[in-house]
Nucleic acid binder design. Structure first.
Lengths: 148, 148
DNA sequence: TATTGTTATACTCTATAACTATA
DNA sequence: TATAGTTATAGAGTATAACAATA
């Protein structure tokens, strides 16, 4: 019974963390002229290299139509470029021009800085514990989301 | 140096947890005919009792216009009701009819079940540690978001 | 036939600005 | 004069369905 009170409080804190984390990152992105959804596109292309919109739709678990809109906006603002696919004339490759690469690097630096701010004051053992518990929570959630 | 790798990995896991958590809860809400934003309204009215839309806008940190839309949708689907304010004829009170109260109770049960699923397998000490570390992360984020 | 990306349409959440009715 | 809530308008993210070009 004491246990349940504990669980509720932890879930409340976790939910608050998710909201605050989104707010904080959203602010950083807005300063760079990006939104959350568009950043995900830039991030994936930076990680995997040039990709078709179809591949992006699959990775983002979003409709192809949605990717069209996101890429349109990113092309208009110079974050990505559309290149013809070398062998499949139906497809287009989304690639990062110089500007996009710089932004992806900056995003990575932002992330490193955020990690330092969040975990910097915790001891090595505490970070390890937190990591382990969060990984457990993540695995449970993966199962829950996969089998609804 | 080893430290930084650790921090990055923990942040990655935390970010994945936020996404999975949102997905899982969104699914539960959709099954009840609610969206995330509308649920926040139901939740606040259930917690605090009948409130003006202005009060909801302040608590949600959202524009009054936005609240109009959310309440419109909730009224149309029977989750909330608009009552005249007893003393201020400009204002309306958002109240929960029976259906809304039942839904709020169900949401609370959902939440308890989720907490049990997420933390049930962890030991008492682990939950306490996780709670402490998450509370620290939350406090850091509160400062970051408050002073951007 | 199947796949890639698009146009067409619609819904949700969000914002600002102008306005009405009241305080 | 200030406040509560609305209409008007706009933009971002999301979806499905129909369609063109290509595989």
């Amino acid at each position: 019974m004491m246990r349940h009170l504990h669980d509720h409080a932890s879930l409340d804190v976790l939910l608050e963390v998710t909201v605050l984390l989104a707010d904080d990152m959203e602010g950083d992105l807005a300063r760079r002229g990006l939104t959350r959804a568009r950043t995900a596109v830039v991030w994936l292309v930076a990680l995997h290299g040039p990709m078709t919109q179809r591949a992006l739709a699959d990775l983002l678990r979003v409709s192809p139509r949605n990717v069209t809109g996101l890429v349109d906006a990113l092309v208009a603002t110079g974050f990505v470029r559309r290149d013809p696919h070398p062998t499949d004339r139906r497809a287009t490759l989304v690639v990062l021009p110089e500007h996009g690469t710089e932004v992806a690097d900056a995003l990575q630096r932002d992330r490193a800085q955020l990690a330092e701010q969040l975990f910097g004051e915790l001891g090595e053992r505490e970070v390890a514990e937190l990591h382990r518990s969060l990984a457990h929570v993540r695995d449970v959630l993966r199962r829950l989301v996969a089998e609804p």
